[in-house]
Simulated scan of single mutants.
Amino acid sequence: MSGQHRDKPSGDSTELLRTACVHAGVPYGSAELLREGENTIFRLPGGIIARISRAGQEKVAAKEVTVSRWLEENGFPAVRALALPGAAHQPVVISGHAVTFWQELPPHRHGTPREVAAALRALHAIPPPTGFTLDPLSPMTRLRERIEGARTLTAADRHWLRNRVETLTSRYNSLPPGLPLSAVHGDAWGGNLVVTPDGQTVLLDLERFSIGPPEWDLVSTAIKHSSFAWITAGEYAEFVEVYGHDVTNWSGFETLRDIRELRMACYVAQQASKDDGWQSEARKRVDSIRGLLGPRPWPWQPAL
């Protein structure tokens, strides 16, 4: 696990991390802030990455650690949770914040569509875990909170988006039969499936792991071509060839596509409330899904 964006840490986060390190038996040393947002990421001495969740996320953090160890047991390359010394267990919870510790990844790049397809095919083939329970996929999670938290939305936008959530929730609950349910990553794009210098694809960000339709993971790459033209037809054809299934031919594709586009629009709309630099992109995305900018592909800019 790693990060790229460096900001000045808050005093609260550094003190919280210092306390968590003491409880975990991990050296604090000269902690380096990598990213501060919904999750705050630090690099510690010895190739250790510490991740501080937002308050109230202890269950999610515990799931990430459990999933990481399950994937390791199945020989699947993913970020590895650190084995803490003594009797310490992850996550370490300090003042309501779950802190987890991970092995730092070597330098890496985003996965190509072909590499993402190979990783997803292997992931979806792993039998669901028996030693713990993964919750069912919930693709509408936090959408309502994002809509209410996006202060730059107009009243008309907010009304339309609320109705869209209700409509897509109903459509998702009536999906037609598709591929057999499996463990799914939940946010399977090239930035969460990275490649190390030795050519190994490594899965990152395990917080949305669940049991659900594998098509949900496939849609993320499909819409890069059909909705935004971020990848070529040839690259998408390679993705389909390697995975062995074209999700765009499934009758449930449009429902999952529409949900993913809605999530992407609402994320940027919420970011625009914090950073004026996002406002133009947020406006473009909301107008697109409202049908005001013509047919796909839409001119969205990737929000990395």
Rank of each mutant, 00 (worst) to 15 (best):
L168I: 04
E15D: 07
W278G: 04
V26H: 03
L256P: 00
R151P: 01
P180L: 13
H89A: 15
G37E: 14
A269L: 04
N173Q: 13
S220L: 11
E145C: 04
N163K: 14
H5R: 09
D205T: 08
R6S: 03
Q270A: 15
I231G: 04
G3L: 04
W230G: 01
K8N: 03
V93K: 03
R35G: 06
T141R: 15
C266E: 07
P127K: 11
L204S: 07
P113F: 04
H23Y: 11
R164Q: 15
R51Y: 08
L44I: 12
R54H: 14
L153Q: 01
I52M: 15
R208E: 12
G294K: 13
L17K: 01
F228E: 09
A61Y: 11
E215A: 09
Y28Q: 02
G234K: 01
R296E: 14
N249T: 10
E238K: 02
V26L: 14
S68E: 02
T112R: 05
A87L: 05
R18C: 06
T201M: 04
D7L: 13
T14A: 13
T255L: 02
P299S: 10
R151E: 05
P106D: 14
Q279I: 07
V79R: 14
L120D: 07
A303C: 15
E241M: 11
L82P: 00
D258H: 09
T40G: 00
F253P: 00
A125T: 06
P177M: 09
L137Q: 06
G294Y: 08
R142M: 05
G294F: 09
A156L: 09
A62L: 06
L181P: 09
V165F: 12
Y172G: 01
R290K: 11
